[in-house]
Design a protein around this nucleic acid. Sequence first.
DNA 1: ATTTGCTCAGCTC
DNA 2: GAGCTGAGCAAAT
Length: 113
Amino acid sequence: MRVKRRDYKLLKELVYTLVSMIPVGRVVSYKDLSIITGISPRIVGRILKENENPIIIPCHRVVRADGDVGGYSGSGGRGFKKKLLELEGVKFKDWKVEKSYFWDGLNKMVECA
DNA sequence: ATTTGCTCAGCTC
DNA sequence: GAGCTGAGCAAAT
């Protein structure tokens, strides 16, 4: 399912909203966001990168499906992202988040809807 | 565990 | 208009 280009702006808002819903100490994969929004995972990353309100959007809580930290365009890069997550209570195994920290709340919400 | 191929919106040439 | 570039994914090796 693809979204019309005209809706791209709304799509961004949706992504931001979803991301801002992630509880502390939990993470969500780009893949899940891509499924929910109906766009490809890369575009999710692009949207986060282009986010207009970095303050209310905890981009660091979005990681790759493999558990890998992924990239980060903010200050400090990936290292800072990892540190931030650890600070919130997420434990890492090398550079990967343990699966138990993935949050499936979004998927459940979508199932409900 | 590592390499390869695919994806799709945006930017550049 | 054609080609390159990613904050990724999944399958094959």
